[in-house]
Design a protein around this nucleic acid. Sequence first.
DNA 1: TAGTGTTTATTCGCTT
DNA 2: AAGCGAATAAACACTA
Length: 291
Amino acid sequence: MNSMSSYMNAPGMTSTGHMNAHYVNPVGVSHCSVPAGMLQSPGPAVQALPPSMSPISPPPYGNMPVVNPGFGQPCGGRSREAKPYRRSYTHTKPPYSYISLITMAIQQSASKMLTLNEIYQWIMDLFPFYRQNQQRWQNSIRHSLSFNDCFIKVPRSQDKPGKGSFWALHPDSGNMFENGCYLRRQKRFKCGNSTGTGGKEAARGKTGSVTSSSSGEPVPCSQAAHLKPDHLKPDHPHYPFNHPFSINNLMSEPPVQHRPEPPVQHGGYGCLDPDTSYYHGTCSRPIVNST
DNA sequence: TAGTGTTTATTCGCTT
DNA sequence: AAGCGAATAAACACTA
């Protein structure tokens, strides 16, 4: 969490830390979307990707669309460590929450599920920022995986022994970032059932650990319990990312071409302008052209 | 023993 | 101000 507060002084930043500038990367993709540059410019890091991951190539760091002075400020300027901006922008914090990073990592993998370490590697391969302070953010990653219902554990198959389970996305979690806001979801995804107590949080404090079954079977929630790999296939009807604004589509479409319905955007430290594909700062209301 | 996973607590920023 | 989402820290348990 270094080098962040100084971004407030960057062009486009209001005194309140809102990001009003429309930052456009060299390929014209919004910083708020999943970087389309992922699909371009194979970089050396791709070779470090584990076999389970699809050959999506991180871009050269110099072209990273998500890192930009004045934009790397996450969470609306939330920072605890005031440190003057000195580093290259390739080491600024990407404008994605950990949840969105995990989602991206899982989503781009061929098997739609990754081990914890693979998630670490994907993030570090793509975002140099996360090559530092690994203990800090990796703890946060683990916390996010455990805490959020949108992530489910998939046990390793016997032919893939190793440490840790695979992590996948909940089949119903696909629209978490449908409004283009990758820092703050409209609503936290909760795995619900008819009683409203089916999520991980419901499991916490009642039946104990989500994964405490001695058999090693993950029982994170009622819906995850029946998750099968088929759900993780793109052609499956429950595939989480069929929304036009989904990460999957953002990653696969030319960035300037997708012009979804103007979303009603809530929450948001930063959102995507559907007309321009430019990044907007705080946008709790639908984006309209000022007259 | 290191890595993984869970849980709790705290803090912060944004929205309502 | 309250509620919420997110980031961070830390403690603890489990497991390969």
